[in-house]
């Protein structure tokens, strides 16, 4: 029983990281209808930016985050402005372009760092709480807490602020959104920027846990796709709970079935969800199409 609970907690904490990455991916997908294959690579870039502040200025990743988040926000705005916006009438091309961006980012980082692994071990990264029989890594617990706060905060912002309502309006009917006076480019810039800024937050939380390599993003982007489908396309809370679920599935499958099969197993779940409940746990059936309604 203790083993089971420990695995459950480990899965939950892993899921918190998946949630954080998935929320950013889902924001761009939900609003722009672009599958951003480069999102994992953006997390990787954010980690290297964090490492830069750590290595050059000796900043702790948890402190550097106040610099990394605005830098990544601007980076995200750049992705929209220079890559997605010029292709805005060709949704298919936008998705291919993000795949190209993934390669460019990986290769650029590889060229700069020469592929040497780096890590940022802080005091905190070895800190483990014991609650009864449970062992909880402090940094992983923190990432779950932060993911929870961000998911709740973003969902509330989308629900209650005028800008959030405008973003939801664009998701539901873009031409009518324009009739209301919503500046589509401005909102898209904001969303891609926020998505990258969330990758910056994720980077700070991942810094004490993962060692850096240019291919690091792949560890997150594959689960994130499963999470987004599982949780529901375009739903922030869906991405949050989906992330936790995928983390738990991965941990349980890794222990009870076979560690090498853990990813195969959540992909089976992913396919099962697609067949049984295509709208995901919290998504809306057809929501992935509403945004494409082109005429007014």
């Amino acid at each position: 029983m203790d083993t089971f609970l420990n695995i459950l907690v480990a899965g939950l904490l892993l899921g918190g990281i998946y949630s954080l990455v998935s929320i950013g991916l889902n924001l761009v997908f939900g609003v722009l209808r672009v599958v951003n294959f480069a999102h994992g690579a953006v997390v990787m870039v954010a980690l290297y930016v964090t490492y830069f502040f750590y290595a050059v200025f000796g900043l702790d990743p948890y402190i550097a985050v106040v610099l990394v988040v605005p830098i990544m926000f601007v980076f995200g705005m750049g992705i929209y402005w220079f890559i997605l916006r010029p292709l805005q009438d060709e949704p298919m091309m936008q998705t291919f372009a993000t795949f190209g961006l993934l390669i460019v980012l990986q290769n650029t980082v590889l060229a700069i760092t020469r592929g040497e692994p780096h890590s940022m071990n802080t005091e905190l990264s070895r800190l483990v709480f014991s609650i009864g029989p449970l062992n909880v890594s402090a940094v992983r617990a923190l990432s779950l807490v932060v993911a929870t706060i961000i998911a709740g905060g973003l969902a509330a912002a989308l629900r209650y602020t005028l800008t959030g309502k405008a973003i939801r309006g664009l998701i539901q009917d873009r031409p009518v959104g324009v009739l209301m006076g919503i500046n589509v480019r401005q909102m898209y810039t904001l969303c891609v920027g926020m998505s990258a800024a969330l990758a910056g937050v994720a980077a700070a939380l991942l810094a004490p846990i993962y060692s850096l390599s240019p291919g690091l993003g792949d560890d997150f982007i594959l689960p994130a796709f499963a999470v987004v489908v599982l949780g529901g396309l375009g739903s922030t809370m869906g991405a949050y709970f989906g992330g936790l679920l995928v983390g738990i599935i991965e941990a349980l499958a890794g222990f009870y079935i076979d560690p090498t099969l853990k990813q195969a197993i959540w992909f089976l779940v992913f396919i099962a969800v697609l067949i049984l409940r295509p709208s995901g746990l919290m998504g809306r059936l057809g929501a992935e199409e509403v945004g494409l309604r082109g005429n007014a």
Binding site: L162, K165, A166, R168, G169, Q172, D173, V176, G177, M180, I182, R284, V290
Partner: peptide
């Protein structure tokens, strides 16, 4: 906007 309330629709107006 079908998945928004009447009030939210008016606010976006």
């Amino acid at each position: 906007f079908p998945f928004m309330t009447v009030l939210e629709n008016l606010e976006l107006g």
